[in-house]
């Protein structure tokens, strides 16, 4: 545990050193959030049709998405791990006396959390300081906040285990970069990164909500505002657990195969 904590610290302080990068990320996330909020407001005003989510729920969704971007981003996978897959350095990883899956998994979690910790504060502060309709509201209840934290951890687990599968699949192909773009690209819409999933019309929405990608950021960001509550929340959490277990199992199996292949073919 101590090992991972020190890893977290290292990540955190390297993150701070690149101050331009930090400022960039913050500004990006802040403006992204603000512009998105504006779009939804204009949409709401231009049409009398009922919104599938309350406006304050949309605003919370958008700001939390930007604040915790690092936790749920399937797009920015760990470049060091990718580097190892591309240049063959992965073979050395398998020589170490630890489980590669556990090691990579905790590494990804560590770097995601460090980055999120670095960024969520200022972004949320910005979200609190913007004027009224765009301002983030507090969690709908203490219970909602608790569920937000719980489902956020689960969502990060699902996201990381998905990325682990991507790494492993990339290992088996000759063009990891291409696969990475393809696989991560496909997830964007399905995970609710483009628009919140409730905005997707039926019957698509019903299907999409069952997919593992909907168990990522979609759940915690909606739990916070109380958009996802009561009868709908429990199945969603169970689904998250289910997908986490399934994807981790697949990842571990793939990892074992990769290991066997390295032992036999020398990488």
């Amino acid at each position: 545990m101590k090992k991972y904590l020190s890893f977290f610290r290292v990540r955190f302080s390297t993150g701070l050193q690149y101050r331009m990068a930090a400022v960039t990320a913050l500004t990006t996330q802040f403006f992204w959030g603000l512009l998105e909020c504006i779009i939804f407001k204009v949409l709401m005003e231009s049409n009398s049709v009922a919104m599938p989510m309350s406006y304050s729920a949309v605003v919370s969704y958008v700001w939390l998405k930007e604040a915790f971007f690092a936790l749920f981003n399937t797009w920015a996978a760990d470049n060091e791990i990718f580097g190892m897959i591309v240049d063959g350095g992965i073979a050395y990883e398998f020589c170490r006396p630890v489980s590669v899956y556990t090691m990579w998994f905790s590494r990804s979690v560590g770097s995601r959390m460090a980055e999120a910790a670095l960024r969520c504060g200022p972004v949320l502060l910005g979200a609190l300081l913007v004027p009224a309709p765009y301002k983030i509201s507090p969690p709908s209840s203490l219970f909602a906040f608790f569920m937000f934290l719980l489902t956020m951890i689960l969502a990060m687990g699902v996201t990381v285990s998905f990325c682990m599968i991507v790494y492993m699949l990339c290992f088996f192909t000759i063009s990891p970069v291409g696969w990475r773009v393809l696989l991560t690209g496909a997830v964007e819409l399905l995970s609710g990164a483009v628009i919140p999933l409730p905005f997707i019309p039926q019957p698509y929405r019903q299907v999409i909500e069952l997919l593992p990608f909907a168990s990522m950021q979609n759940i915690p960001l909606r739990a916070y505002s109380g958009d996802l509550t009561g009868d709908h929340l429990l199945p969603a959490v169970l689904l998250q657990v289910f997908w986490f277990v399934v994807m981790t199992t697949i990842g571990v199996l793939l990892c074992k195969r990769a290991e066997r292949r390295i032992v036999i073919q020398g990488g």
Partner: peptide, 10 residues
């Protein structure tokens, strides 16, 4: 080195 210094350097 150090977290404090890194913050300062910001």
């Amino acid at each position: 080195a150090g977290l404090k210094e890194a913050c300062k350097a910001l």
